[in-house]
Design a protein around this nucleic acid. Structure first.
Length: 212
DNA sequence: TATTGGATCGCC
DNA sequence: GCGATCCAATAG
């Protein structure tokens, strides 16, 4: 592992009291999606410590949201969305990529927040290895599939608790300016402007036509 | 069992 | 702009 800075060491030894806990996630999903902006995602593997600031999220909310996996009711795949808040829901998409979500709201109500982009802060050297071919920091985590590749997140972590030491969140350091828009890559539900991002942050995913 | 299309990405 | 590539969900 690369040498750690003082700040990285603090991440590595984050106590359970500093992590965002169940009561952070067990709230209205649109609130959580916005409050996640500026928080720090931490990933620990056997050999690596990785972290980054969340700069873009999307909310998927209820069985009547036509863009949600929970649209039309519970299935084996979306079952986690109905479970208690504070767990990771990770799925495989388009035959190539994983997407990371955090389950929100009380048990029984299906909802989650998709993490769409991060500003990487720890472990960039390893991220460049895993994101083969990427040239600039900007491209490491500026998309939901990209950040899963950079953070070594796949189906093995599906259902993991965010109180675990392998994947957790720390509070942000400063308030952020929030913008919003329709969600990306969906064919229905564009009337719900449930994508949130940090204004003027260069690590937000670059989608043609999406507002900045 | 077969078919369809997807909360994406990277190359053309 | 389009193909890759796998799998969940649904229909038959």
């Amino acid at each position: 592992m690369a040498k750690l800075t003082v700040q990285d060491s603090a991440l590595a030894h984050a106590s359970s009291s500093t992590k965002l806990g169940h009561n952070f996630f067990d709230r209205p999903t649109l609130t959580v999606a916005q409050d996640l902006l500026g928080t720090i995602l931490v990933r620990k593997t056997k050999n690596n410590l990785l972290s980054g600031m969340i700069v873009e999220t999307e909310a998927y909310l209820g069985e009547d949201d036509p863009a949600s996996h929970a649209y039309g009711g519970m299935t084996p795949r979306n079952k986690l969305m109905y479970g208690p808040a504070g767990f990771a829901y990770i799925y495989f998409i388009y035959g190539n990529h994983y997407c990371l979500n955090f389950v929100t709201e009380p048990e029984g109500f299906p909802a989650a927040v998709l993490i769409r982009a991060l500003q990487p802060s720890t472990g960039l050297e390893q991220m460049f290895v895993d994101r083969k071919g990427v040239k600039s920091e900007i491209q490491l985590c500026n998309g939901p599939g990209k950040l899963c590749q950079a953070f070594q997140i796949d189906r093995k972590l599906n259902g993991i608790s965010l109180a675990s030491d392998r994947l957790f969140l720390l509070p942000g350091n400063a308030p952020v300016q929030i913008g919003n828009s329709g969600r990306i890559g969906i064919s229905q539900g564009q009337d719900r402007k449930w994508r949130y991002y940090i204004k003027n942050n260069p690590y937000v995913s670059n989608i043609k036509g999406a507002s900045r």
